[in-house]
């Protein structure tokens, strides 16, 4: 049933064309900030940082794109929590695909070297480190999106500023897994060592699971 729900939500996301705005914004962001020949780990950190608000935006789209009447039909068939979980999962998977594509592109065009271009940095391991950072951003972005859109925050006037503020704080606050993952990458770039952290992805996973569980719990209580 979960597969059918995710398939339905993915079709809804793609056919609604509301994914275009965040994806184009992300592409523009990368085009402005990433150029060929820059240090690979620095560019990956930049791309991973940008993915976080984009993921939160995708979550917002995924949980608002289904009209209320149709949402009732899906909730009756699958249960409101599972239906909501499918929306969040769809956004996370879309963000993951976007992050993976960005990682490949950045790893290919960047200079496989440290920030001062003195030490070589292997492209393959750098891409793996980039994927890990993307994963952390997608997880934290999903958590931010889940907690700042319906059913947790129902008014757009509250939800959109809350989403932007939470996404920004997640990137700059010490202790945030997203900030830790980005710091690992930039420090690795400076030292010419590819970081493969375990702590940040584990913490990001815990944050995402808790936020998603809370949002799904609320989804049956606040229509």
């Amino acid at each position: 049933m979960m597969a059918a729900l995710v398939r339905y939500r993915t079709a809804l996301l793609l056919r609604s064309q509301r994914w275009l705005a965040p994806v184009i914004l992300y592409a523009v962001f990368l085009a402005v900030g990433v150029q060929g020949g820059q240090p690979v780990l620095d560019s990956l950190a930049y791309a991973a940082a940008a993915l976080l608000p984009v993921t939160a935006w995708l979550v917002r789209i995924c949980v608002t794109v289904e009209p209320a009447g149709a949402r009732g039909c899906t909730a009756a068939a699958a249960g409101p929590r599972r239906a909501h979980l499918a929306g969040l999962l769809t956004a996370f998977l879309a963000a993951g695909a976007l992050g993976a594509a960005a990682t490949v592109a950045v790893a290919v065009i960047s200079d496989a070297a440290s920030t001062d271009h003195q030490t070589a940095v292997a492209r393959g391991p750098a891409a793996v480190a980039g994927l890990l950072a993307m994963l952390v951003s997608a997880l934290v972005g999903t958590a931010v999106g889940a907690l700042t859109s319906r059913p947790v925050l129902r008014s757009t006037a509250h939800a959109v500023p809350a989403l932007l503020l939470a996404a920004l704080l997640a990137l700059v606050t010490t202790g945030s897994p997203a900030k830790a993952a980005l710091t690992d990458l930039t420090r690795g770039s400076r030292d010419g060592v590819v970081p493969l952290p375990v702590g940040a992805p584990a913490a990001a996973l815990a944050v995402a699971v808790a936020a998603v569980a809370a949002a799904c719990w609320v989804s049956a209580r606040r229509a």
Binding site: P67, A68, G69, C73, A76
Partner: peptide
Amino acid sequence: TAYVPERFP
């Protein structure tokens, strides 16, 4: 369960 809402969008 299946449900038919009052207003279908």
